[in-house]
Write a protein that binds this DNA or RNA. Structure first.
Lengths: 356, 356
DNA sequence: ATGCGCGAGTAACGCGCGTTACCTATCTGG
DNA sequence: CCAGATAGGTAACGCGCGTTACTCGCGCAT
């Protein structure tokens, strides 16, 4: 068996790289032949015998291709870059997860670079430019931009040298394809669920009314109510800071404002953090969930929704799916295929738990 | 000004790469000269004049170095790889954040590959091997392994071809350097804080007693008590599932077991999720936090700790710092420097909020 | 005038691999 | 017996860059 006894041995590759040449020598063929069998070339005329001989040599030497050299020679890197503030503000990590998984499936590598776009036009505007630049230096085949919350962003000019897809955000001026949650449908889903449970008077704890999430979700809520022949009472829509405290205060406001018979029987909280605060307000008043007041959230922040008592029914933001779809879209773009639409909406599924 | 009027123009690099050769031609020098000024070579004798001429050419053509080619030629990739289940189970993302930031500072690139080690010896044991292999194909200079929770792991053999550091986990058999939280000191910190607030009878909601986190934190708790001349009453240590429900039940158990005068006045919950459940149990009984019962957690899961009412005082797991330290250690290793210790403990700082 | 050192730069090799063009031996049909 | 096809390869170029060795002109001491 062991021909070359002492020197190299499977798994114990020598320090600096076994190359194709080594494999070729070991197998007694040309390097070209090795390259052909390793890349599974179609019209390669290599006899079955030498093919196996080469494969054995690969095993024996523990050969491992050099991705960089391959990229240089083939002019394709198999890398996508994603620049995201998620690394800096870990809320929607699932975007990365989804993208990562999909990339892995496609045998692509995802290079992750941090961005500070969160501080918008702030002082470190330069950072994401640097990130983009670094990624382009790696000759990524495409770029992804991901935001922690749905909003408009400004993409560095240089990014446009390469196919680019936006995830959970959209290009303020340009025409870059983007993947965003279908906030409107999500809002509709939430309210429909409450209506279905028999609620007719529904309080809404709103977010900053200017952001896409608030606009869309509220619109969806109105639609659902309209379908049921109801209207959204403006007095029942109270804004809150997007925190538990904000939710608590908003909930107090709603609960204390009306005599019991006029009090809403359900609360649609536009995010789970506020729902968390609303829980406290409700419990404080000796009311039960969902018996006296049903609560439905939005976002499906697992750490909150799955651990509140009772567990929170909520509408999920499809981060993971958006990430995956982003990579798929990018793959299509880099392959020269036309994309489906400029802006792809991803549905927000309802997660039934116990608060409705 | 504009000499070459039509063709290339800043920012609008032609599709497939401006190379050093182009820059050299544009500046009327050799490619070597360009290489020298771009890499800021020490003993390069390049006149100030040609130096600026070259830099101008770089600007004018929008030249961008090709990282792959550079890596190939220089035999250094400037890449670290991190394989982690965090991508699949995003709990300790801050490890990635810390590592990423530090790598960025060091001008290194962090390649992130997913692992499924969470299911230990499960069916997809192969995945992380594949991940490691992929990273090695990229010729990363070093490898990081990160786990979502502190525990022993098994590292693929192939990883040992390259400097490797473990974060938030340790090598069961081998001698790989690792970075882990100082659980013992953290446990001590928590209990000392309670003692300082005057509590003498402290209940502990434990985790699975076999995991390093539980072992260490409990040991620290004992030490702190011993320092105060107290002992940990075994009856006051009740195990719980690491969830809110688990914490709820354990807290009920403790609170209902004793008459008021014997009841503990403080609860040390070994993680924040269980503290979340404990809150409910306490509130349900009409008790206040921290008035009747003080609560201290562990982990500092922001989404929980910062949003509970009252906000939860807790001991933080230093994920970000561990990530950064991991990269620093790796940098030292790859530079051939000896490392400080085989296992580096990172302190767990107390985060004062309002529950004690 | 000669030699020597130095500033300023260049030619050329190699990194590991994909790829194209070519080459040789063997078989087939006429 | 020979043209041509086909199986089974190989030589050699280039990808973009780092790096070493070398060249060339010039000032200065001998």
């Amino acid at each position: 068996m062991a021909k070359t006894t002492t020197s190299n041995h499977a798994g114990a590759a020598r320090q600096r790289g076994v190359t194709m040449n080594d494999v070729a020598k070991h197998a007694g063929v040309s390097r070209t032949a090795v390259s052909f069998v390793l890349s599974n070339r179609e019209n390669a005329s290599i006899s079955e015998e030498t093919r196996t001989r080469i494969n054995e040599a690969v095993q024996a030497l523990g050969y491992r291709p050099n991705a960089g050299a391959r990229a240089l020679a083939s002019q394709r890197s198999d890398w996508y870059g994603i620049v995201t503030e998620i690394v800096t503000a870990p809320f929607a990590v699932d975007i990365i997860k989804g993208a990562q998984d999909q990339a892995w499936l496609d045998r692509k590598f995802l290079l992750i670079a941090p961005s500070d776009q969160a501080d918008a036009v702030g002082p470190n505007q330069g950072l994401e430019d640097a990130a983009t630049e670094k990624l382009l230096e790696q000759r990524v085949e495409g770029l992804l931009y991901a935001a922690t919350f749905h909003r408009g962003v400004h993409v560095p000019e240089t990014a446009k040298e390469v196919p680019t897809v936006l995830i959970n955000c959209f290009d303020a001026d340009g025409k870059l394809p983007s993947i965003v949650p279908d906030e409107r449908a999500g809002g509709r889903t939430a309210v429909e669920r409450l209506l279905q449970a028999g609620h007719r008077r529904i309080g809404v704890i709103n977010l900053d009314p200017a952001i896409p999430a608030a606009i869309g979700r509220l619109e969806g809520a109105r639609e659902a109510l309209a379908d049921a022949g109801l209207e959204l009472d403006p007095e029942l829509v109270v804004p809150g800071y997007a925190t538990a405290d904000g939710g608590y205060e908003a909930a107090c406001h709603i609960l204390d404002r009306y005599p019991q018979q006029d009090r809403p029987t359900a609360l649609f909280c536009l995010n789970d953090r506020m729902a968390m605060g609303a829980y406290d307000a409700i419990k404080e008043r000796g009311l039960t969930i969902p018996g006296d007041i049903a609560v439905i959230g939005f976002d499906n922040q697992e750490l909150i929704a799955a651990y509140l008592r009772p567990k929170l029914t909520t509408v999920a933001l499809p981060f993971e799916k958006m990430g995956a779809l982003g990579v798929q879209t990018l793959a299509a773009l880099t392959a020269g295929q036309p994309i489906v639409a400029d802006q792809q909406l991803v549905g927000c599924p309802l997660l039934e738990r116990s608060s409705v």
